[in-house]
Design a binder for these strands. Structure first.
Length: 476
RNA sequence: CGGGGCGUAGCGCAGCUUGGUAGCGCACUUGCUUUGGGAGCAAGGGGUCGCAGGUUCGAAUCCUGUCGCCCCGACCA
């Protein structure tokens, strides 16, 4: 009866297979000829464009501008900041031949751009009057990962990386925090994904950062996904790249820098947080098609009904993204399943009975029975329902986050729950404990949530005195 | 890098044990009938069986080598 189940493996049976089925069947991606690379197909790319548009507006509103820095970075530049090199060099791809000749210096395909941006900033900044520098770029980076998964971890991925320089430490820290807040806003208001804001432990910090702020979201299988990060880099990079300015007091000082990024991994989060056994469920604000109208009719009346559907679409344009599925070669039942798999938030069915009654039948992708909308109410009703779906998806995700969050005093309690979820516990602050935990359970410290103090129940690993409240989880 | 799985039509697979001129389902094309939860009938098109050697009268099938991909771990956005 439910033939969607024929094509998509149920989440409960095999979450990983479910994810692969959904990304393939909903035409979100395809595997590229080179291992670890994927093609982002139009439907998924459109979602990415909505994410870009929203983030870009937030960045602009806080004074940032877009620019573009080169793909290739000379080895000598990449290796200038010690921790940074150590962190990234294992996964860098190198260009060694150009124009048929072996290059005198290897060129790295950027794994991230702090180094080349830093080198350029050093040339552009002389005075405190040149600060702050607030630049973002939309690009792709390459990290040669051992194991890849569509959207979640691919060798090349699309993202934005912001790079800023500030006159004071305080201003740079505030910048890093402000950008984290921009990401949180995107996730909550647009992607309908709740997340835990926090800072990374020293062991989990970005290579070369003083502080890494993170947003950790809980996926449907109880694993954590780092959705976006924002780094306060202190003066590590300004010292490595000589980003100095003459301050008002006549002293030559190093700038304080930040960097922050969010990637197409957010698409993976979107799929895993909202999807169900029938496929995708897209929040209206990022749905390429928000409303699909399916005409139902046979023989001579069909043409008339299709025309009627197009008239309805016209009424809803341009405030809503509407599609009339007037394909002749598929039955209504096929179309219902097809659009459900693709996550379209709202479906309107129009048959002869509806035309006669002056109404349409509506079906929400976020659950519930079909209901009728009186034709004269259409514009208002669609707008209200889309808004409700946006909020209900967030509410469902928030409920899942809460249901998957546990307070523990010993990490064994997490094992009892099969390590599924966010486990809030105390930590002594020793990396040895974090390492031991990872060894034993493959769980890591996802973050030290902002605003939480230790419960003073002792480290959940070694039971020595508590220093921090942390979230333990298995991560993607 | 360890473990597992798989390479045969666009996709999913069978055929391989026991060698004999390549098959099924879906998809695709055309026509007719259909359309309120994945339509039916009919007629079609499409494959150097991952690659390279070898054995043999003859290899998708047996042997050797090789390449690639997927999944699960460890490392990482």
């Amino acid at each position: 009866m439910d033939k969607a189940l024929k094509e998509i493996t149920p989440k409960s049976e095999d979450f990983s297979q479910w994810y692969t089925d959904v990304v393939k069947k909903a035409d979100l991606m395809d595997y590229a000829p080179v291992k670890g690379f994927i093609v982002i197909r139009p439907y998924a790319y459109r979602i990415w464009e909505f994410i870009q548009a929203d983030l870009d507006a937030r960045f602009r509103a806080t004074g940032h501008e877009n620019a573009y820095f080169p793909l290739l970075i000379p080895e000598s530049l990449l290796t200038r900041e010690a921790e940074h090199v150590e962190g990234f060099s294992p996964e860098v791809a190198w260009v060694t031949i150009g124009g048929g000749e072996v290059l005198s210096e290897r060129l790295a395909v950027r794994p991230t751009s702090e180094t080349i941006v830093g080198a350029m900033y050093a040339r552009w900044i002389q005075s405190y009057r040149d600060l702050p520098v607030l630049i973002n770029q939309w690009n792709s980076v390459v990290r040669w990962e051992k194991s890849t998964r569509p959207f979640l971890r691919t060798t090349e991925f699309l993202w934005q990386e912001g790079h800023t320089v500030h006159r004071t430490e305080d201003e740079a820290v505030r910048e890093a925090e402000q950008q984290l807040e921009a990401y949180r806003g995107l996730m909550q208001e647009v992607l309908a994904i709740p997340a835990v804001s926090g800072v990374k432990s020293a062991g989990e910090r970005f290579a070369g950062a003083v502080e890494t702020y993170t947003l950790e979201a809980l996926m449907g299988d109880g694993r954590a996904l780092q959705a976006a990060t924002s780094h306060f880099l202190g003066q590590n990079f300004s010292k490595a790249f000589d980003i100095q300015f003459l301050d008002e007091d006549g002293a030559l000082k190093y700038g304080w820098t930040t960097s922050w990024g969010a990637s197409t991994r957010l698409l993976g989060a979107l799929i895993m947080v909202h999807g169900d056994d029938r496929g995708l469920r897209l929040p209206p604000r990022v749905a390429p098609i928000q409303v699909v109208i399916v005409p139902i009719g046979k023989g001579g009346e069909r043409a008339q009904i299709v025309e009627y559907c197009h008239a309805l679409k016209k009424r809803l344009d341009p405030s809503t993204r509407v599609m009339v599925d007037d394909r002749d070669e598929f039955t209504p039942g096929y179309k219902f399943n097809d659009w459900e798999m693709r996550g379209v938030p709202l479906r309107l069915e129009v048959g002869p009975r509806d035309v006669a009654a002056g109404q349409v039948m509506a079906s929400r992708r976020d659950g519930g029975a079909k209901f009728a909308i009186v034709s004269s109410e259409l514009e208002r009703a669609v707008s209200v329902v889309l808004d409700e779906i946006q909020h209900s998806l967030y509410a469902q995700a928030l409920a899942n986050l809460k249901a998957g969050s546990w307070e523990i005093t010993d990490y064994q309690e997490a094992l009892a729950r099969d390590r599924r979820g966010f486990f809030y516990g105390d930590w002594c602050g020793e990396e040895a404990c974090a390492a031991h935990l990872q060894e034993e359970t493959s769980m890591t410290i996802r973050c030290l949530p902002l605003g939480l103090s230790p419960a003073l129940t002792g480290c959940a690993v070694c039971h020595q005195p508590s220093r921090h409240r942390v979230v333990f989880a298995r991560a993607y």
